[in-house]
């Protein structure tokens, strides 16, 4: 019953988009700039999340005591915070009248309603998904293996790059796919903090929102395109399913 409820709207969307000239919908002038912008911003945000998130996840996974627990909980906050709230919060901190407003202004940087703001909003909402997957991947590594590497004289960077990173890699790729998918679907925080300007801050979800009022075919076509992309991400995730990955069985 629930599965039907989950699948019927998506099926309906795909069928309708297929019947009503998907070509015409995709030809709408709003589609390609939005697609280009979405691909660009999600690539930027995902790279940031993956690089900074890998280092943080490693520290959280290896950390003991209050700091690691606190950091782990704090890093999951954006999952439960409504995206619109996140957008307002970012505006209050990075906006012209925000906490860092005067500082940024003096440096000649204006963030709100720019492409950079889109990337920031995407990082904010998508990072927890990567962190969760990456922390879990690092935790699956057998502790004795890391101890052995250290007794052999390996420095912490060597232990990380030669042992921990290769073993956690499938889990990290899973996290990349999850956070990228979340960034691609990001709507609320982007609308609040970056606005809805075609070519500059109008990503695919915002383009759907705008098109719904004027060009239903285009809205349908973009929505169907996003369902296809999401489905592909899910396939990638399944292929990288943890358990088939770290080869922990070898140490048993």
């Amino acid at each position: 019953m629930l599965l039907l409820f989950l699948l019927v709207p998506l099926g309906g969307l795909l069928v309708r988009a297929a019947i009503t000239h998907p070509g015409a919908g995709l030809a709408s002038p709003a589609v390609w700039p939005a697609l280009r912008l979405s691909l660009f911003t999600t690539t930027c945000s995902t790279v940031c999340v993956a690089v900074l998130g890998t280092a943080l996840a490693w520290r959280i996974a290896r950390g003991q005591g209050a700091w690691a627990r606190w950091a782990e909980t704090a890093s999951q906050l954006p999952v439960v915070i409504p995206p619109a709230v996140a957008g307002v919060a970012m505006l209050l901190v990075f906006g012209r009248r925000g906490v860092f407003g005067p500082l940024l202004d003096r440096a000649g940087i204006a963030l709100p309603f720019t492409t950079a703001a889109v990337v920031m909003a995407e990082i904010f909402v998508s990072a927890p998904f990567f962190l969760q997957a990456a922390t879990a991947a690092f935790r699956r590594i057998d502790e004795p293996m890391l101890i052995v590497a250290r007794t052999l004289g390996a420095s912490p960077p060597r232990v990380f790059f030669r042992i921990a990173l290769p073993l956690a890699l499938p889990g990290l790729w899973g996290g990349v796919a999850m956070s990228w998918a979340r960034a691609l679907g990001e709507f609320g925080a982007t609308l609040m903090f970056a606005g809805n300007m075609p070519g500059r801050t109008q990503t695919l979800p915002l383009a759907i929102y705008s098109a719904l009022e004027s060009d239903l075919d285009a809205a349908q076509a973009i929505a169907a395109l996003m369902v296809v992309i999401a489905f592909l991400v899910l396939l990638v995730l399944r292929a990288l399913q943890p358990g088939t990955v770290t080869g922990g069985g070898a140490a048993r």
């Binding site: 057998d142 004795p144 073993l167 070898a250 140490a251 048993r252």
Partner: peptide, 10 residues
């Protein structure tokens, strides 16, 4: 150091 179960890098 050789831990239990060898702990080879898989």
């Amino acid at each position: 150091y050789v831990p239990q179960d060898a702990a080879l890098f898989p």
